[in-house]
Simulated assay, not measured.
Amino acid sequence: MNKDEIYSLLPENLKKYRNLSGVAYAMSEQVSKDKSSMDSLKIYLNMKNLDDKVLDQLAWQWNVEFYSSELPKSKKIEMINRSYFHHITKGTVGALESALKAIVSNLEVKEWYEYGGNPFMFRLIVEGDMLTEEEISTVYKLVDIYKNVRSHLDGFIITQKNDSLVNFINGIHDHKKVINKFIG
């Protein structure tokens, strides 16, 4: 981008100032210097085409929480893509839910007022397939990292719906203890 192109972007009421042509020149010099480094950022547009080793390096660079080189490629990409949002929004429900959904896509965070609980409490609800112990452990670790410090988890409910009309399988996970309820 040259000086004239930058100058043309200025609003008409500012173009009357002579010193702005100097500013436009300085900006054009900086843009031309930065343009070569901008091409390297295209790596984020085509992550699905990157080698696993490159993804592992990006995850290290972005300090992605609980990233593992053993994860499937799709999970790696999802965690890398979400990492910046997670770091700038830690302590919010949005960051917590986004971080957890990178591990368990069908997880939902319910705040205390949505289910009639006590203030500053929340629950995690998963509908669908049962989780592995590793997934459950990772969920608890992510909760500790991304939740607001004054908020507390008061329930982790895992519900699996059977295809028959009468059977539901519910599991309530209580920090290393799973209680299964069979209704039907």
Rank of each mutant, 00 (worst) to 15 (best):
S68M: 06
V149S: 04
L50W: 09
L9R: 12
Y113S: 01
L58R: 09
G116M: 11
K101N: 08
N81A: 01
N81W: 01
I77A: 01
K33H: 06
L41S: 01
L100W: 12
A24F: 10
D4S: 04
L58C: 03
E133I: 14
Y67P: 14
S8I: 12
V109C: 01
N13L: 11
K147E: 03
K48L: 06
D52M: 09
N49I: 06
E70S: 07
E78K: 15
L96R: 14
I77C: 00
T138G: 01
G91S: 02
R18Y: 10
S74V: 12
A95V: 07
F66P: 04
W62Q: 11
S32K: 15
K48Q: 12
L131T: 10
T89H: 14
G94L: 06
I145S: 02
Y25M: 12
Y146M: 00
S68N: 09
K35T: 13
V149L: 03
S137W: 11
I145A: 03
K90A: 04
P119Q: 14
R82F: 02
Y113C: 01
K16V: 11
F122Y: 10
L20G: 01
E29A: 01
K48I: 12
N106W: 06
W62D: 10
L96M: 11
S98I: 06
L14R: 04
K15M: 12
Y113G: 00
T92Q: 09
D52H: 05
K35Y: 14
V143D: 01
E108P: 02
K53S: 13
V109Y: 09
Y115A: 01
S69D: 09
R82H: 02
S40D: 10
R82K: 08
D52T: 10
Y84F: 14
G94P: 02
L14N: 02
Y146V: 00
E135G: 01
V109T: 08
W60F: 09
